[in-house]
């Protein structure tokens, strides 16, 4: 638990430093357009990787697809594309993923 508190402190410090550097040091400087684009794409890459790590899970040294997670993700993707509402989409995805797990168990 101590480690979690250390992590919270480090995350708070690094996040705040990134904010204040932007305001105090980067202000008025022309940033390279390529670097700007790169920064904008980084969160997409990280979040995509996190999703994959939840769908494809290691079991006994082999990779296995978690079908309840996959079904939950696909239904959430379709729902948010149609409804464009965050919370209902998450709830529908969770219910369908949970139902898939129940049916497969």
């Amino acid at each position: 638990m101590l480690n979690y508190w250390i992590l919270i402190g480090l995350l708070a410090a690094s996040t705040y430093i990134s904010r204040i550097i932007g305001i105090e040091i980067m202000a008025g400087r022309e940033m390279n357009a390529t670097l700007r684009l790169y920064f904008n794409y980084v969160p997409i890459g990280i979040i995509s990787a996190l999703i994959i790590k939840q769908i494809v899970i290691p079991m006994d040294g082999q990779l296995a697809i978690s079908f309840p997670v996959l079904i939950g993700c696909l239904s959430t993707a379709i729902t948010i594309k149609v409804l464009k509402m965050f919370l209902p989409s998450v709830m529908i995805g969770a219910i369908l993923g949970w139902a898939a797990r129940y049916c497969m168990s």
């Binding site: 690094s14 996040t15 990134s18 904010r19 204040i20 550097i21 932007g22 305001i23 105090e24 980067m26 202000a27 008025g28 400087r29 940033m31 700007r36 920064f39 904008n40 980084v42 969160p43 990280i46």
Partner: peptide, 11 residues
């Protein structure tokens, strides 16, 4: 890595 974009926002 995620916080890099704060540099842009702050500027």
């Amino acid at each position: 890595l995620l916080n890099l974009r704060n540099l842009l926002y702050g500027a």
